[in-house]
Nucleic acid binder design. Structure first.
Lengths: 335, 335
DNA sequence: CTGAAAGCGCTTACAG
DNA sequence: CTGAAAGCGCTTACAG
């Protein structure tokens, strides 16, 4: 069975193909009656326009690329689904790409991707959204793109983010409200912008409550389970260990919990542990983790929405900031 | 800067566009010298053929759809990357789609997807690969597709899978070799084919070693953390609880571990726990989980390879069975 | 408000 | 081994 074409629809509706095209693309200047007739025929024939033909004739691909680099599976799946959903609503296609290179090689990789797919736009996730090389390459191609949680805010492109600093501050204040006065902190990956923000929020909360900042209670981390385990061991073997530990993400918080289990330290009776992100693992550790809910799905949905707005109007929409919320579970308790 | 077209290449190489096309598509009947010259020009001009034009003229989309339904993020990300990698090698594009419907609605959803994207083929992951409605719909469209870990083997299409039964049998024998004689088992989702296979392997191992099958030590599960927690609580509060528990996947094994932690049961001293899949969580629980490594990436890579073979040769390649391996970590020990 | 013509950048079918 | 012509199914640019 041959696929229906725009000609079939035009013939059946008794109009020119240009009119069908107008209806399908929501263009003005079609009599309401004509529009209804065409739409009826489209439905009856189960007609779907050919993406290839539209792309070729219209000189655009109706394709959006989502690029990322090795973040956690739980995070990226949420992001994918948020972006997909928004694309689907607009009959755009989403194409996901995991980057492998770094620096200039990364720029080449992305450039090649754009050349081959002819994507109309790109959604860039952290930490790629902080790569100067990548941003420069996209700028040079003048490809419309949008960033999720970027570091440098001012730019010709919009972005979607959340307030990492305030979120970390609130979580710290929650721990303080439980009576904790010596709180350990595990930093995120040094190349991620959010890492600095979260540390800043932590420090602000301490300062606000007159608690001195103790550098020895702050350890480096890489956003990965192992680094949390290692940092947790360091903190918990100190002569005077903290009574609470706030890790910059859930994976590292899970590592801290393992370190505590190893040493027979009870959570939350002897130690409170808090994370950040509210990914799947937060509910799959014992006890379940107190954490900050990061709206990954919504961030991606909103970012994709901004991109589609740009593509449609040629204007640059305003950036979007989304809310977070503290999720208090069983890993934290009174001192 | 205008994009390079096949005409630019043809002109620069002093040949007809048809010759350029032959070279780019690896068609025969081109003098080696001509081929080299064309290739040089392609490189020099940084020419990339337009997917839209190829698709429109060739009546194919060079697009493969990967469909799945809500499996764990860690699993699906591995699968995505395996399929992507193989597609990239062949200059095909991968388009991922998360299904939401079930039964006939699912069939409609997929049919609509195929109509809109014009995908040349489809990679179907479990449990969708077991949906009779879906398979029937694809058959009706005569769309080439390939299944990962399907239940019904004989079909016009090939598949890639692993030996779940033997893997589960081996893991059970490992527990037996540690001295365990009363082993609890948590079943997977009843609608997943692999669930039955894993239970079967468990039973075979018991039988082989003369251990009676005790229905009361076998609990239902849904492949989710919560169901593992619940089943674990049931098993561990029995008057005579098992000394080892084998959960049909890692998420449920993590649930069992939480149940044990709740009750102050030490792992592996008082209880051994084993999982299945070797996803990220297996290394993020304490103690780290003994499990079966399922080659998700390779399964997807191989399945996609089979599909591409089909598309090229119009023949149906043989199914592929991949190996697994036991990963012995710290959650299991001698009785 | 509507339509006829040209053309997007390739592949197919055919000729030599 | 190579090429000239037609055509894939749409949109753009223009005319009325």
């Amino acid at each position: 069975m041959r696929r229906k074409t725009i000609d079939d629809v035009a013939k059946a509706a008794g109009v020119a193909i240009k009119t069908v095209s107008r209806v399908l693309n929501d263009e003005p200047n079609v009599k309401e009656e004509t529009r209804a007739r065409v739409l009826a025929v489209v439905k009856e024939l189960n007609y779907h326009p050919s993406l290839s033909a539209r792309s070729l004739a219209g000189n655009r691909s109706y394709l959006i690329a989502l690029v990322y680099e090795n973040p956690s599976a739980n995070y990226i799946v949420d992001v994918q689904h948020g972006a997909m959903e928004r694309c689907r609503e607009e009959r755009f296609q989403l194409f996901v790409h995991q980057c492998s290179g770094r620096g200039e090689e990364l720029a080449r990789e992305i450039t090649g991707l754009v050349d081959q797919t002819r994507a109309d736009g790109m959604v860039v996730t952290p930490p790629l959204s902080e790569s100067a090389d990548l941003i420069a390459a996209l700028d040079q191609r003048s490809l419309p793109f949008v960033r999720i949680a970027p570091n440098e805010k001012p730019h010709r492109t919009p972005y979607a983010d959340m307030d990492d600093e305030n979120a970390a501050c609130e979580m710290t204040e929650y721990l303080i409200s439980l009576g904790h006065r010596q709180i350990g902190f595990i930093k995120g990956h040094p190349e991620h912008f959010a890492s600095g923000q979260r540390l800043k929020g932590f420090r602000i909360a301490l300062q606000r409550h007159g608690i001195p900042y103790e550098p020895d209670d702050v350890k480096d981390g890489l956003f990965e389970f192992e680094s949390g385990l290692e940092a947790g061991r360091q903190l918990l073997t100190k002569p005077k260990p903290p009574t609470a530990i706030f890790a910059s993400n859930d994976d590292m918080a899970a590592g801290v919990m393992m370190a505590a289990h190893e040493m027979g330290i009870e959570i939350p009776r002897q130690l409170s542990v808090a994370g950040f992100d509210d990914t799947y693992i937060a509910r799959a550790v014992w006890p379940q983790l107190t954490t900050v809910h990061q709206p990954s799905y919504d961030l991606a949905y909103s970012a994709t929405d901004l991109l589609l707005q740009m593509l449609k109007s040629q204007k640059v929409p305003k950036p979007v900031r989304l809310g977070y919320r503290l999720v208090c579970r069983a890993s934290t308790g009174p001192r």
